[in-house]
Design a protein around this nucleic acid. Structure first.
Lengths: 108, 108
DNA sequence: GCGAGTGTTCGATGAAAACCATACAGTCAC
DNA sequence: GTGACTGTATGGTTTTCATCGAACACTCGC
């Protein structure tokens, strides 16, 4: 086998270009996911693993929310040893849905 | 009693400025409501009563959806005789959530 | 007043989604 | 290998929301 050996299934990603508007809106219409996105936006790319996010739900639910964000083209994930680190797809998502991310990050 | 007599309760409106982001996103994360907003955007202000929108739900559900849109600051309503006519709050909503409405109207 | 037309409210139902606890699958250090 | 750690998958509960049918309220023309 080649180098970079990982026997774990790579997470499935969806590019923002392939995401319907309704999917993007539904993904962002949840307080927990918005909090994840905001924390992620305030961090360096690939600096945060899923477990480091402080949201008031169990880890199973957290994992589910990350899957939703991935499917909405908002988050990219990569395996780094035992943990899965994240990156907010700022530019790609912004190119597809101009202003939307900024709106969510701005807050109230 | 003064002129313009209406014994019907005026619909409660919420100004976009008082709408949380999550409420706005949740309101627009529904296919029926998006269709209503799009049809409304393609019509003149105050030209369409609730019944004239062609969505695949009964009138009870339709009434509910209009209430949600009102609460999200997206729609303004006024009673005109027996019917309730609508207006999309384009500028006010756009001032509060720049780009969001345009995003939804653009479609996919 | 009466009847037709329009829209809201109420109660109930069904579907979707969030959530948890548990069990499982990798990765790493030892 | 064993054990600690991290995240995913599964099964089941709870909550939320869209929907409908029926009843109600209001307006208007007759």
């Amino acid at each position: 086998m080649a180098t970079g050996t990982s026997h774990r299934a790579a997470p499935e990603h969806t590019h923002p270009d392939d995401v319907p508007v309704l999917t993007a809106l539904a993904a962002l219409a949840d307080p927990v996911r918005v909090q994840l996105v905001r924390e992620l936006a305030a961090s360096e790319d690939w600096s945060r693993s899923c477990g480091t996010f402080d949201v008031p739900v169990g880890k199973a639910a957290k994992s589910h929310h990350f899957a939703v964000l991935r499917a909405a083209g908002l988050v990219e994930q990569r395996d780094e040893g035992p943990r899965r680190v994240n990156r907010l797809r700022r530019e790609e998502f912004d190119a597809r849905f101009p202003g939307l991310l900024e709106l969510v990050l701005r807050g109230d």
